[in-house]
Amino acid sequence: MNELVVVSGKGGTGKTTLVAAFAALAEKTVLADCDVDAADLHLLLEPRIRRREPFKSGHTAFIRQADCTQCGVCDTHCRVDAIRIDRDPDGNPTFSVDSISCEGCGVCVHFCPEGAIDFPESTCGEWFVSETRQGPMVHARLGIAEENSGKLVTLVRNEAKRIVHDRHFELLIADGPPGIGCPVIASITGASLVLLVTEPTLSGLHDLERGFELADQLGVPTAVCVNQHDINPSMTETIDRECEQRSIPVVGHIRHSRDVVHAMVAKQSVVEYTESPVAEEIRKVWHQVNAMLQAGAETRA
């Protein structure tokens, strides 16, 4: 099985636009939206949800007021300032846990002399298995202010892999999260190929370098695609040179085009929406990426 993960150092570079187009061009593919913080792929693919599961991860402390003696031991030990102390007009304190700040370390639970702190598992979001016109898709939604999207990313990937296996498909395409932190690490570890999507901007170049470092650390083969290359041709050249020096293939340049937004508004991928030059460039990127995946699979076999 091949697994392609499309990522970008910063958000908004056109990751999801490419994934949706690839989904339309590839055959027998399962899609995974690993960008659980800002999941947008569903807006283009209009999934029909077949399965819906709560996502539980970690624990959150909860003080039972009836048993709390306001001794303050929890507050002494908490290092993330998650213990709230509210005072009534007479100055009597009430202790409670700010569930948004609590990182679930359990230290207050252990040291509360009254045993007055519960530690239930927290529901942090939901994940879904859906059918779309381009095939099955696994996606998720993380609750507001929830941490731990790395675990959810792993879950989404594993579920998608299971479907690839069950249906005897050969390809998994994942829309990865932006950044270089835990969710990104969780989404690209062990992938067959990472496609870094960037724009020819100073920030794009800067973030691309951080992306290279990470992919290199994790030992994942990498390719680069420059989106909106005509915004700044000389920066595009700089990026091409940088990639050449690192022996990282540039699989395509995609022009700036309003068709991209128009397709989004029409809830379609660019290649479904139009035959214009931008769609043609995206097709070329897909053929290159697909060739790399096939070559990689042969090397592995």
Partner: peptide, 13 residues
């Protein structure tokens, strides 16, 4: 940072 996850909350608090 972009998004609505834990680090974002840290920034907007």
């Amino acid at each position: 940072p972009p998004g609505t996850s834990c680090p974002v909350v840290e920034a907007v608090k």
